[in-house]
Design a protein around this nucleic acid. Sequence first.
DNA 1: GTCTATATATAGATAGAC
DNA 2: GTCTATCTATATATAGAC
Lengths: 218, 218
Amino acid sequence: MGHGMASRTDTKTRILDAAEKLFAERGFSETSLRLITSKAEVNLASVNYHFGSKKELIRAVLARYLDVFMPSAAAEIQRLFKNPELANLNEIFSSLIKPLLELNQVRHGGTTIFLQLLGRGYIESQGHLRWFITTHYGQYLEAFVRAVSASAPHIPPAEMFWRLHFTLGTIVFTMASADALNEIAAADYGEHNDTEAIIRKVIPYMAAGVSVPILAKE
Amino acid sequence: MGHGMASRTDTKTRILDAAEKLFAERGFSETSLRLITSKAEVNLASVNYHFGSKKELIRAVLARYLDVFMPSAAAEIQRLFKNPELANLNEIFSSLIKPLLELNQVRHGGTTIFLQLLGRGYIESQGHLRWFITTHYGQYLEAFVRAVSASAPHIPPAEMFWRLHFTLGTIVFTMASADALNEIAAADYGEHNDTEAIIRKVIPYMAAGVSVPILAKE
DNA sequence: GTCTATATATAGATAGAC
DNA sequence: GTCTATCTATATATAGAC
């Protein structure tokens, strides 16, 4: 940006890198600016200089992932629907695997961090992150909902609304607990799953749940 | 308790009643003792006198529900398996509806509060509530896992471990977001769902996901 | 058991020198 | 842009009178 030094990462980037890791692990309110700046090895005041407030830092952290993931996911969905035969739900959900795993190339552990941040954002913040996501990325979300609805036409829109939030809860909670669950699975069953393996386990579960026929009233 | 007055609820109970509501709505760390004691109309210092610390208050709030719910749920499961024919997954999950809704008789809105607290407990606290629950109520959890496994014998134990945690995530995230989701559903679809309606929506989703056959590797 | 007053810690944010 | 020092608010927790 006009200076000749590149021996150390940008302060702004250092803050984002440290913040996203801590936010994903501990949650937003449990992570202080002091902890972030000490991990990032930058001055406390620099957060306010670069981002204005903690709230805006949180949004910046999320935006850095959403700006990569959303267009990539939308492209995959679109590519899937170029094909004349209707995609099934497993295929639609599976088409998100590539965009999700690409986040691991953007940053180490990016996939897990992103999904954890998403979960924290929906649960922890009293609506302001939900608002931020739906207003800034609403077009992508709508396209995804349309694709899912088209491949499960027997589910009415209101029911689909609930089921898609069920899937959000499923994936987000799973990733938030992934480390703990992996430890237990290794100890009890000798299994060693990476993020991709867990995602591939959860997709059939979600696809089956979303498309299950609605029961007649008893 | 040796005094003749009963014109007003026990201070300890007033604290628990106010705390559980605020914890469920806002989360643990977003709820200060000052807010709790002012809603409960008791003195700030009384929390420490009666519970020792905020952390112990949180456990007391959860225990008051778990002590009612867990034995009741276990009895329902046992009753279901007295019947010779094998129960299906929908029946097993549905057998939890009665114990859950009974919590509404214990306290107004008890079912929602309990499920929200459970969700907050698993997501927000860094493992110490998870530990509290599994060590104090582990026998009930194991009985439930055995019942589910028996009715889905085509799912190996390691896979069932993952799927039951998927269901935990599904229900827990849904309830933690229930108020926000209900608002959206009301605005967008004119739906007004109470807690029971949401529970009845989520059960087929979870049952389908848990029992879906494992796909052959592609 | 309940109160006031306060100790103690930590949070986010900012002013102003460099 | 980065630093030190500090403001202001709020948190949990406790000491000690009643």
